[in-house]
Structures are given as C-alpha cells and as structure tokens.
C-alpha cells in the first residue's frame, strides 16, 4: 500500500507586499534579476519560483520565506 502523491497549492502575498512598499513589478524584477513577466506569473500563481528565487524575494522584502509563500491545502492519503 503506497502513498498518493502530495499535492500542493502554494500562494504568495508578493503583490500586497509590493503595494505596501510602493514597489513596481519592474523594480522588484530588476532587483532579483528576473523579468517583469516572471514576477507577474508568480503573483498570479501561474509559476512557482525555485527555492533560490523564493529566498531572493524573501531577502528583498526582509521577511521569512514562509511569511511570503504559504501552503493552501496539503492532500496526503494513505
């Protein structure tokens, strides 16, 4: 009897953090060396960043990675 694959739904609050600090997508993108389209995709949940990129975002906002990226639902069945 094996385990079913774990399904993750990861959300983020990058858009809200940018709005709080008055930072444009372009500015954040340039700071962490990605394109503006990548920032947009991450905010919309269309693309999950790599661990390295997630850490860069956390360092930029001076927050813990788990304050920015959250797990919505975790499904694990035995």
């Amino acid at each position: 009897m094996g385990k079913s694959p774990i399904k993750l739904n990861i959300t983020n609050n990058i858009k809200e953090l940018r709005a709080l600090d008055g930072i444009a997508q372009e500015e954040l993108a340039n700071a962490i060396d990605v394109t503006r389209a990548t920032i947009s995709s991450i905010e919309k949940g269309k693309y999950n960043p790599s661990l390295e990129l997630a850490y860069k975002i956390a360092i930029y906002f001076n927050k813990d990675i788990q304050e920015i990226f959250k797990l919505e639902n975790t499904h694990e069945k035995n």
């Binding site: 060396d33 990605v34 394109t35 389209a37 990548t38 995709s41 693309y47 960043p49 790599s50 990129l53």
Partner: peptide, 8 residues
C-alpha cells in the same frame, strides 16, 4: 532564457 521561468 533571461531567467529561470523562461528556461523552464
């Protein structure tokens, strides 16, 4: 391939 997303 400007960043990881475009590489993907």
């Amino acid at each position: 391939e400007r960043d990881e997303r475009e590489s993907y």
